[in-house]
Design a protein around this nucleic acid. Structure first.
Length: 550
DNA sequence: AACTGTTACAACCGCAATGTA
DNA sequence: TTACATTGCGGTTGTAACAGT
């Protein structure tokens, strides 16, 4: 990676506008003593002051720096400067190949948890890693390459599948994580106004990622997603998904979806200025599917919404940390999905209205699409027949992961889920070397400069059926009781029905397309690019996380 | 040489978590 | 228990340096 050394800025080169305009921790650009604080690049003199202070007083109490030294920097800025530049044993310079590989692996596990990643890279700061990764994202996006090197994804899956008793649910959790649910705030606002209630957030499917999923299957694009309008994902985690007023839930815990108020969707549509798939018909019909399914399935004695939640295409619940399902705020509709999965209720009775040929289920639809020779993407995903025999356990060299094995559960990331299409698109090629960074080494240009290029020839080609099967086996072995669970009339009606019911509402490509348009129209910022086919490049979720650090 | 686009880096911002009086 | 301060984190932005045209 090309590195540049930034010039140190002498004291007298700072402009006036770099002084005092910063909002410090007190929020007014001044210190507690009313001193106008400076912002912008640090000077060597300031560094010296800070270093001396830390040597004398140790780290911490950063707000005291200004008070004791007169340094016109807020405590936060001092801490950052020290942590990222001044503290000893910082490793400067380009990342080594080993470090780059490690970052990829760590990101696959942790997502955008830079600070935790930095722990594994001595001398490197979270900021460095973050910058590196963001640059990598742009670079690879531009090159049309998958973000993760081959082997990362599957190895991660393998690890999580064997990484502990908690792996199952936690992986599932990541799979569904809300971070990938980035819907314009307007949705929340208008619905909140209408519904007046912000129901538990976990029940609603992530429409955006159903779109992602569909498009993800369909697209060779590696990833993309709807950008959040909130700059802080933590905020988004808290954003409920108030599509429904669960105050209407009946005493059996079943939500009568017919009660979804149409005007809520009208508002929603209006907010985006387009006719959207989020129209009343869409939701009421789709949700009614669930309702009927649940009712028909005699879910009243179980916890229907958990079932729905879990059996949606394992993809999106706005805020779910399966690792903490047991500790989530109690909701009458939420409990362990396993209760449902293990329910003695004959699954045949769960056949819903959605199980019509027209609504045969997202996964089935996707699989069918994959099987269709005319699929525009088949070329891309086709791979040798022997690849289809590969199982997660057979794939890749997992040695690179061994060092993290004991820590798997430490890196469950409720923030960085499996992305729907990320999962499906990021599948490494069979036999790919996990140690490969999927990048070409720097190429020397005519003038001798080294330019890092992308290997555009690399193709990740998951086998749809085996891949999804292994995926679900890895993520929800309790769900996928057999590898051919998705096969119609395979005798595994239960599983199929579950998935079918859960995914039927989003199985139409047009829906995803419409919603894509809707979201695009909904942004107030014309320059903001809304991508829908999968995850966004500037906010790539982890390939997987297993559990939360807690 | 001028311009444009990209990269790498530094720093800021807002928020949440944690600590403390 | 609560209010406030501090710390930590991740996203975003700004910009210098560089590459290509």
């Amino acid at each position: 990676m090309m590195r540049r050394m930034k010039k140190e800025i002498p004291d007298d080169m700072l402009h006036d506008d770099q002084i005092g305009s910063q909002l410090n921790d007190e929020g007014n650009g001044t210190s507690a003593c009313g001193v106008v604080l400076k912002k912008g690049p640090w000077t060597t003199a300031e560094d010296d002051i800070l270093v001396k202070y830390v040597k004398k007083n140790g780290e911490g109490n950063w707000n005291a720096v200004q008070k004791q030294t007169g340094l016109l920097r807020c405590g936060k800025s001092c801490r950052l400067r020290w942590a990222n530049h001044l503290r000893p044993h910082l490793k400067k310079g380009a990342f080594t190949e080993e470090e780059e590989r490690l970052i990829c692996e760590l990101h696959a596990k942790m997502g955008n948890r830079w600070a935790r990643m930095a722990v594994h890279l001595p001398g490197r700061t979270d900021n460095e890693i973050k910058n590196y990764w963001n640059t990598r994202i742009k670079r690879r996006h531009r090159a049309g390459l998958p973000l993760y090197p081959p082997g990362i994804y599957q190895a991660t899956l393998n690890n999580q599948s064997t990484g502990g008793v908690n792996g199952r649910n936690k992986v599932h959790s990541d799979f569904l994580h809300k971070k990938s649910f980035n819907m314009h705030d307007t949705i929340f606002d208008c619905l909140k106004d209408t519904q007046g209630i912000l129901p538990y957030s976990a029940e609603l499917p992530d429409i955006s990622d159903y779109g992602n999923m569909l498009n993800g299957f369909d697209s060779s694009q590696y990833c993309s997603f709807v950008p959040s309008t909130s700059s802080n994902p933590k905020r988004f985690r808290e954003s409920p998904m108030p599509f429904l007023d669960f105050g209407c839930i009946d005493r059996n815990g079943i939500y009568p979806f017919e009660h979804v108020q149409d005007d809520a969707f009208d508002k929603l549509t209006q907010s985006f200025g387009v006719q959207s798939p989020l129209n009343p018909g869409f939701f009421s019909n789709s949700l009614s599917c669930y309702s009927h399914s649940l009712k028909n399935g005699n879910f009243s004695t179980s916890k229907p919404f958990e079932a729905v939640k879990s059996e949606l295409p394992s993809l999106q619940y706005p805020e779910i940390d399966l690792g903490s399902w047991g500790t989530s705020p109690p909701h009458p509709l939420l409990d362990s999905i396993d209760d449902f999965i293990k329910s003695p209720t004959p699954i045949s009775t769960l056949e819903s209205d959605c199980s019509s040929p027209q609504n045969s289920g997202l996964l089935q639809s996707v699989l069918h699409q994959r099987k269709t020779p005319s699929s525009s993407q088949n070329q891309y995903y086709d791979r040798s027949s022997n690849s289809s025999t590969a199982t997660p356990c057979e794939r890749d060299d997992l040695s690179a992961w061994s060092m993290y094995e004991p820590e798997w559960e430490d890196y469950a990331d409720p923030v960085s889920p499996f992305g729907a299409s990320s999962i499906l698109n990021d599948c490494p090629a069979v036999g790919a070397n996990i140690n490969s960074l999927d990048e070409q080494p720097p190429v020397q240009t005519d003038n001798g400069n080294m330019v890092k290029s992308e290997n555009i020839d690399h193709v990740w080609s998951p086998d749809s059926e085996n891949y999804i099967t292994s995926l679900l086996n890895d993520t929800r072995p309790d769900l996928v009781l057999d590898s051919d669970w998705y096969e119609p009339c395979s005798g595994h009606d239960k599983n199929q029905s579950i998935v079918t019911d859960a995914t039927s509402m989003f199985q139409e490509d047009q829906l995803a397309t419409d919603y894509k348009h809707m979201t695009a129209a909904g942004t107030s910022n014309p320059s903001q690019v809304w991508e829908f086919s999968s995850f966004g490049w500037n906010n790539m979720p982890a390939v997987c996380q297993v559990s939360d650090l807690g």
